[in-house]
């Protein structure tokens, strides 16, 4: 049976859904252990046991968060060696990918990012070129390192909980690392994370600076708010919200595009959404070529009407 090591970074007091997805995927592939960075809270330990994790590896050093990526990658590679891992799983965040990148070099292991499914033999599936191809990839090395996109596995506890043991991993010294000298937390929006959200409502140039109608519809649907590059470049909304080639790639169940023409740069970030709804004044907008439901109309009329109707139906 394959040995799988799941890397989880600073879970705090509860595991994120994406972490539970990795544990569920790991269990389907073999025997799972976790390499944790940060404190192991009792509730998190209980969740690990519930998800069938037998071993939690913890770093000997507590200052991994003070540096950028390098010592975390050194720790993960050492943990993978200690655990005898065949497959290492991480989340697909920018940091997850970079830890994977460097740990892969240390382990002489092939790294595959943006994975949406893994077969029993370790073959990974991902879509490339902005969702225009689905590919199957495989690492030919003894160890594979895979970063897995959220929302592709349904989290499921193990049939029987595991007895959890903890093991310390000696973190190798890293001579060259950038130090994080200050960190400012951003104000939480209270909305779901854009990359993982089930529903995204996105606005573009047509909003003319006023994201109110998009935000209100998003809140009625419990959705994340996205934006086109035109809207973020204009400073109407934070750059974090940008969906597209130079921003985030999203594949929600529902993507509502409002006042976005849908040029290739935007399309690249959202065309793998399950259902696309578009509202735009211009009937010639390219977004209508890919929309499952399109409305040619003024978003300042259509969006508030839809928001009110949703609130009415949800009571």
């Amino acid at each position: 049976m394959a040995k799988v090591l799941v890397y989880i970074d600073n879970p705090g007091t509860s595991l994120k859904k994406s972490s539970l997805e990795l544990l569920t995927l790991g269990r389907a592939l073999g025997e799972t252990a976790v390499a944790l960075n940060g404190k192991l809270h009792d509730d998190v330990a209980a969740a690990f046991a519930e998800y069938g994790v037998g071993t939690v590896l913890l770093p000997s050093a507590e200052d991994l968060d003070d540096f950028l990526v390098a010592p975390k990658a050194a720790y993960l590679a050492a943990a993978a060696g200690q655990a005898g891992a065949d497959i290492v799983l991480l989340d697909n965040s920018p940091e997850g990918k970079e830890i994977a990148a460097r740990a892969g070099i240390r382990l002489n292991a092939g790294v595959i990012t943006d994975v949406v499914a893994v077969d029993a033999d370790g073959t990974a599936h991902k879509s490339v070129l902005a969702g225009s191809y689905n590919t199957a990839c495989k690492a030919g090395t003894a160890v594979s390192v895979l970063t897995v996109k959220a929302n592709n596995v349904v989290p499921e506890p193990a049939a029987a909980p595991a007895a959890l043991e903890t093991v310390t991993v000696e973190v190798p010294a890293v001579s060259a690392a950038a130090r994080i000298t200050a960190r400012e937390q951003k104000v939480a929006s209270g909305r779901p994370d854009l990359t993982d959200a089930r529903i995204v409502v996105a606005g573009g140039r047509g909003l003319d600076g006023d994201f109110g109608p998009v935000e209100e519809l998003a809140d009625a649907l419990g959705a994340a708010v996205g934006a086109s590059r035109a809207a973020t470049d204009a400073g109407w909304i934070s750059h974090d919200a940008q969906v597209g080639q130079t921003g985030k790639t999203v594949s929600p169940q529902l993507y509502i595009s409002a006042g976005i023409s849908g040029a290739i740069q935007q399309k690249a970030g959202m065309q793998t959404a399950k259902v696309i709804v578009a509202v735009n004044k211009d009937a010639e907008s390219p977004v209508f070529e890919i929309a499952d439901f399109g409305i040619v109309g003024d978003l300042f009329d259509v969006l508030p009407q839809a928001t009110a109707e949703i609130k009415k139906r949800k009571g």
Binding site: G104, G110, Y133, N134, A136, C137, Q271, G294, G297
Partner: peptide, 21 residues
């Protein structure tokens, strides 16, 4: 260390219902 075993072009999205407000 990695190789692409197969690649399939996704069928392009097609337009659905378009209405005018």
């Amino acid at each position: 260390w990695t190789s692409v075993l197969s690649a399939e072009e996704r069928p392009p999205r097609t337009a659905g219902t378009i209405i005018t407000d």
